[in-house]
Design a protein around this nucleic acid. Sequence first.
DNA 1: CTCTCCATGTAACTGGTTACATGATTGG
DNA 2: CCAATCATGTAACCAGTTACATGGAGAG
Lengths: 176, 176
Amino acid sequence: MSLKHAILVLLETEPGSGYDLLKRFKERLGYFWNASHQQIYLQLKNMNQAGLLQCEQQPQVGKPDRKVYKITHSGHEALLEWIESPAKVSRVNDALLVKMYAGHLVDKHIILQEILQHKKVHQAMLNTFLTLEEKYLNMEAQEKAGYALPFLTLRKGILGEQAWLDWAVEVEVFLT
Amino acid sequence: MSLKHAILVLLETEPGSGYDLLKRFKERLGYFWNASHQQIYLQLKNMNQAGLLQCEQQPQVGKPDRKVYKITHSGHEALLEWIESPAKVSRVNDALLVKMYAGHLVDKHIILQEILQHKKVHQAMLNTFLTLEEKYLNMEAQEKAGYALPFLTLRKGILGEQAWLDWAVEVEVFLT
DNA sequence: CTCTCCATGTAACTGGTTACATGATTGG
DNA sequence: CCAATCATGTAACCAGTTACATGGAGAG
């Protein structure tokens, strides 16, 4: 299970609350890791209990306390251990392809419409990634160096989305 | 969710036992849908109870009964309804990219080794897909027509794996 | 005044994995 | 003889989603 480790990664550089983490997930790991706020709050509680994080409560007026979590030494150790041990090849379960496979059962326009809807989402993601890429490429050498690995994950996103869109073209050609 | 629907797809053309389905998953939906035998047996039981499938028990000597499941009318309806209603864009949770993102915490050879391991698996998958593609391309026009949609899902696999391997090259260039 | 964002959480449920369990047959 | 494959399942656990719940602040 890796939500735990993803949280450790995001807290490794700076402490943050559950909500902060939610935002960081969207900004930084958005393409390859998703987490809902419910999952995050629960995980933080568990990880705090397990001693991977420590929590500082900041009282707020008219709001629930702001709980800022910080990685502990034990948390840092756990993170390194995880990075160093091999990960399984992640296998997808893609419902769209199951539909595609059985598409002969319905009118082909239904499948085509579905593809076009998904295409919009993938095109939008690609655009976001390309904007981020440009930002990176315009950085000064020094700043660039610090973002090299995140940039490689961005490249994964770009190549993945481009492949998706190339595939969509093949599908459209066949279905129209 | 969709394991249910994937099973309906696989039983739509011909009945089969849990073990038959396990094999069909591997052969036909392998790239985009994974299911363990435990999941399948459980689902079949539930779907039988829900009236989507009917089960015929074939007694066997020295073995548990062979339970052959067949899609019912209600199951067929459920399948069509599912295909016709929009699917969410599937979002990946890829632990390898989380590691990559935080790769600065460890020696870069650790990340490189991990990439090389994963690359082997992706290369093997691509080879399998390319073999299947060739098989399809050598079919006669008539037979080809019947496999057009499954062929498109195969194309997705091919484009996806090629993109993965292209990305791996970029990673290797950076890490060596 | 309503909508969106900020900010936090609990509870029930569904989906999926890991571990356990059994035993025959086939191929090297 | 040993490993793999055939063939079936249960139980405990872990991960993730959906629904529910609350309430302030700022924008239009």
